[in-house]
Design a protein around this nucleic acid. Structure first.
Lengths: 215, 215
DNA sequence: ACCTGAACACCGTTCAAGT
DNA sequence: ACCTGAACACCGTTCAAGT
């Protein structure tokens, strides 16, 4: 049987006396990092703090990760996994086609606004060094592929212009990514309310940018 | 007469013996920070290092800035100043209209790809806290206004759809910002060559997204 | 006013050592 | 194998002191 995570209490009160603590320390470390990042942002993430919350020495982490960067890579990887799932669900759930495309765009921005700190870890360049993270690369490419596949299908249906799908996908990804960053950044413009409406507007404008020209 | 900056040599060789060193330490600090950021990225920026390059104690900075964050705000502010100038020049230089809009989009992405680290300080959320930086806010809003004004003019000429200009501008800014981030991030997609061509493609797609619908 | 040098608290990481 | 505690190098920041 897989062990359920034992100690997820927000207030770390209980004292454990056992010597070897966790059944799955690696996952517990990632989960705790995600919690801290969600609550206080990446810059507040401290290895010492992660260890303290898990009642574990601050160096125990090095048994499972090469360094702090590797922990962040794991966080980003997990983010991309659920991210991709939400994109694919939106596309399928709205019945593909034009509506599916719009739903996917809205889902993208919704993910970012609901998990701003996590999203920043995924795209903020904290991870971009390219050193490690074959799994991260695979996971993020899988998310990108959801979009590419949708665009190809829309092209075959005659709904989207017949530019090279990769070029098209980079534009779409960039446009939605930029809208997401502005929505969660507070830079230049403040969200001030209906970010869902802004997301819908963005999705529609992007559709106009890529739809097949009238003939 | 205004003093010209005296010591901008890349290799800090010369030894100054004077007691009170710089005529304009504040500007020298910003310049040095920009140099370090451009060369090695934000994460390599260290107050100790800035001081060492300027042959100044590492705490001298606190006479001119409240903390490291304030120095980064100054860097971002200066970035926004030249950024806005390049956008306005592109718009005017291409004779406004549709061509001006496309030129402005290309200039935006060019600035980002030519000054990736500086661009990240401006938009990477290193500065977003909103504490200080009234000047920063004014400068970044001025850049945004270049775009809004252009869109309004294009609307009056019947070239751009008559959505609320602010909504329109947020979309355009986001789309180009996202393309710029992807171009300099190495995330999801690698630039692998003609980033100028990608910029031109992005600008054209954005134009299709905002142009007045055929009637 | 402007700058310095010593000191402080905090961080990521290493390493010899325990079970 | 997995975890610990002490130690190291480095960081931003503070502060009493110098000119």
């Amino acid at each position: 049987m897989a062990a359920t995570t034992p100690a997820a209490a927000p207030a770390p009160e209980r004292k454990r006396r056992n010597a070897y603590h966790h059944g799955n320390l690696r996952q517990a470390l990632v989960d705790q990092a995600v919690r801290t990042i969600r609550a206080d942002g990446v810059e507040a993430l401290t290895l010492r703090d992660v260890g303290a919350h898990l009642r574990v020495s601050r160096t125990a982490l090095y048994r499972h990760f090469a360094d702090k960067q590797a922990l962040l890579v794991a966080v980003a990887t997990e983010g991309f996994r659920t991210f991709r799932k939400e994109l694919a669900d939106a596309w399928d759930g709205a019945g593909r086609g034009r509506e599916g495309f719009l739903a996917q765009g809205r889902a993208y921005i919704r993910f970012a606004t609901e998990n701003p700190s996590h999203y920043r870890v995924m795209f903020g360049g904290y991870v971009a060094k390219g050193d490690c993270g074959a799994e991260l690369a695979a996971e993020s490419e899988a998310g990108f592929r959801v979009l590419v596949d949708a665009l190809v299908e829309l092209q075959h249906a005659g709904l989207v212009r017949r530019d090279p799908p990769l070029e098209l996908a980079v534009f779409v990804w960039g446009a939605v990514h930029g809208a997401a960053m502005l929505a969660i950044g507070g830079q230049v413009v403040r969200p001030d309310g209906a970010s869902a409406a802004a997301a819908a507007y963005t999705a529609e404008r992007v559709w106009d940018a890529v739809k097949a020209p009238a003939r």
